[in-house]
């Protein structure tokens, strides 16, 4: 695991005790603690990419961490274009890769 949340018992900053929450990311459960952003939960669980770019199909996650680069955009509970580094996670949030190619049933891309 490359990125991770510092375990409360080892953290010199002594954060309050964990209040676990679970978010669903592309169908899989990921746990974090109340007060984390969605990016915080994902990075804390060792996930550092959650968006696929439209043109190049390249993986992206956090870059600026403070809401200015828009690299971390995710779909949250069906609403696209949410900055994961700013939005606090709520238990049960459903998070999806908004850049992923359209799944079956959706409209074709406008091409030409």
């Amino acid at each position: 695991m490359t990125s991770q949340r510092i375990a409360v018992e080892r953290d010199p900053v002594e954060p309050g005790p964990d209040r676990p929450l679970t978010i669903w990311v592309d169908g899989e459960p990921v746990t974090g603690t109340a007060g984390q952003t969605i990016a915080g939960v994902l990075l804390g669980a060792g996930r550092r990419q959650w968006r696929t770019t439209r043109e190049g199909g390249a993986p992206r996650g956090v870059f600026c961490g403070i809401g200015v680069c828009f690299d971390c955009l995710v779909e949250v509970n069906g609403l696209p274009d949410v900055r994961a580094c700013l939005r606090r996670a709520q238990d049960g949030d459903v998070v999806a890769d908004q850049g992923a190619p359209p799944s079956g049933g959706s409209l074709p891309e406008v091409t030409s």
Binding site: P80, D81, P102, S106, L107, E109, V110
Partner: peptide
């Protein structure tokens, strides 16, 4: 708008 999967044809 931001880029999206196209729904306006």
């Amino acid at each position: 708008t931001t880029p999206m999967r196209q729904r306006v044809r």
